[in-house]
Each structure stands twice: as structure tokens, then as C-alpha cells.
């Protein structure tokens, strides 16, 4: 089943991906068919099954509270597509 355009557009908005009208149409079909396909999971009764969170192999580990990083503004800013002095920039945000 094809997904409705509104859902595709709403999702694209959440994901901040601009779409051309032709892309919306293609996605309605593709996303729709993938979603139909994953619906087969509904065949399974998962009532008492715990969700898998991680593979359960690693042991929880905590880091010591020490300053071991930072103070490297050149690295942090080196790939910025647009910057002003020590700042990253974005189109003005009006609050």
C-alpha cells in the first residue's frame, strides 16, 4: 500500500530533508512497500518478549571525572562550512 503524501512530507519535515514533488511520489510507493513488507512481524506474538537493548556482551563502564579532552578549537572549527571568528554560524534564528 502506498503511503499518503502527508505522512511522507511530515516525516521529511521531522528528518529535515527537503523533497521535490517527484521524490514525494516515489517515496510514497517505496516506503509504502517496505512498510507492507515489515508488517509480517505482526505474525509473531511478542507479548512477553523483552526488547533487545544492546547485545548484552559489554559490561557497563563509567569514566572517571577528569578533564582529558577539549581546548582544541582549531580541530572543532576546522571543517566548519561557515564561521565567524571562534563561532560556527547559521542563518539567523528568530526566537
Amino acid at each position: 500500500m502506498s503511503l499518503d503524501a502527508k505522512t511522507v512530507l511530515r516525516t521529511a519535515r521531522l528528518a529535515r530533508i527537503g523533497l521535490a514533488p517527484a521524490e514525494v511520489e516515489a517515496l510514497q510507493k517505496d516506503m509504502g512497500s517496505i512498510i507492507d513488507w515489515v508488517e509480517q512481524l505482526n505474525e509473531l506474538d511478542v507479548t512477553d518478549v523483552p526488547p533487545m537493548i544492546g547485545t548484552g556482551l559489554a559490561k557497563p563502564r563509567l569514566r572517571e571525572d577528569r578533564i582529558t579532552d577539549g581546548e582544541r578549537p582549531d580541530d572543532v572549527l576546522s571543517n566548519a562550512p561557515d564561521r565567524e571568528g571562534p563561532y560556527f554560524t547559521v542563518p539567523k534564528v528568530v526566537e
Partner: peptide, 8 residues
Amino acid sequence: RAQKVRTL
């Protein structure tokens, strides 16, 4: 649901 199936 997928995470539960992953457990299975």
C-alpha cells in the same frame, strides 16, 4: 516490536 523480535 522489532527489538522484541531481535531478542527472539
